[in-house]
Design a protein around this nucleic acid. Sequence first.
DNA 1: ACCTGAACACCGTTCAAGT
DNA 2: ACCTGAACACCGTTCAAGT
Lengths: 223, 223
Amino acid sequence: MVTSKRAPQRSDALSKERIIDAAIEILDAEGEAALTFRALTTRLATGAGAIYWHVPNKEALLAETTARIIGDAATRTADDGPSPQNAVRDLALGLFDALEAHPWVGAQLSREPWQASGLLILERIGRQLKALGLVKNDLFNAATALLSYILGLAGQQASRARLATSVTSRTAFLSTIAENWSALDADEHPFLRELAVELADHDDRAQFLAGIDLLLAGITASR
Amino acid sequence: MVTSKRAPQRSDALSKERIIDAAIEILDAEGEAALTFRALTTRLATGAGAIYWHVPNKEALLAETTARIIGDAATRTADDGPSPQNAVRDLALGLFDALEAHPWVGAQLSREPWQASGLLILERIGRQLKALGLVKNDLFNAATALLSYILGLAGQQASRARLATSVTSRTAFLSTIAENWSALDADEHPFLRELAVELADHDDRAQFLAGIDLLLAGITASR
DNA sequence: ACCTGAACACCGTTCAAGT
DNA sequence: ACCTGAACACCGTTCAAGT
């Protein structure tokens, strides 16, 4: 006759949510490499087994943290804008900002693109492209092309964050790369040497959006 | 007065090249996870320290293996074609084939896009786009957009390979994904449910090329 | 039902010691 | 100069034991 199935819950009880929170805090503060089960147990003042009670393994935990960040970013961007193109742009920029704030998400996203987070992005993009009038194969190709491009950025952000742990400032990072490019062999890499000049003072966000716009322009042109 | 600085070389002596060869063999045959220093020492019948004498660490070894595969793929594709667009297409398809044959390259490429292999691709793309008449910022944006798109594919190929270790056949893999998509909530994922139909019998290579063509069309349109 | 924490099976990397 | 292989400092994960 006792209908309540829930045990009384201590306010500090461990839960999947609290574990994900702690994982995100560690990832944001110290980066991918710092997220170990030992660091988690220390922060949560518990044992490893307790975490495994709520989460099947590290891969799943990372998928959950990524889903949280991407889900929040997607929620923040409106699904209905003045035009489908602008809705895609908004979504893309929202993702860019999320990846910049949490670069470790990029590593996870490009490692497991077929998980919930990647599918969420694909779904959102696809809906807009449908509104643009694309169908069947064209729709499929255009949506996955946009996703691939975004995943490519994701990997780059993650890689940049890994390098930036030693070289703190972004400008320092860029000028280091620019220097490396300038130092390349002129015969083998004439283009990169040239590009090194542009690299120093470019705007990542604008550059990313430019790629989205190229794809959108191509989609419009090939319709 | 002895000018020869080289010690006589045993034919079976360890060398960076032989280590890279062995690493590629393991990666191709058993996948990313199987490449450990212990596996390498067994295959090369040596000790761990011997490998470290020739290679600074695992990351560098992976960079070398990737450089080998990407370098070969780039060499195989002609730099001068009927048109810059076709040269970009050829390069992209060459990379696609290389990634399909060695999916672990995708993981490395998307993890470290700023290493030699990524730069090689960027250089090759950039040269063609220059021939197309692009300059400065447009050139920079277009080249990096194409690279990002390719890196996005790279991550996907790697991820697919990781999943495929359990599910062997490609069609089985795709139909599993298609099933998952079909099972998604109709309200939340209407687009993916629809796409699931297309997914089963699509052509990866054609799909990848379609994305390249969208970017090229966008580049031409925005010129 | 949920948690503890020692133990297990593995890593990449180092280094004193050999040739 | 090049190689050996034991040892070190880590991992993710398991599991008997507790409450």
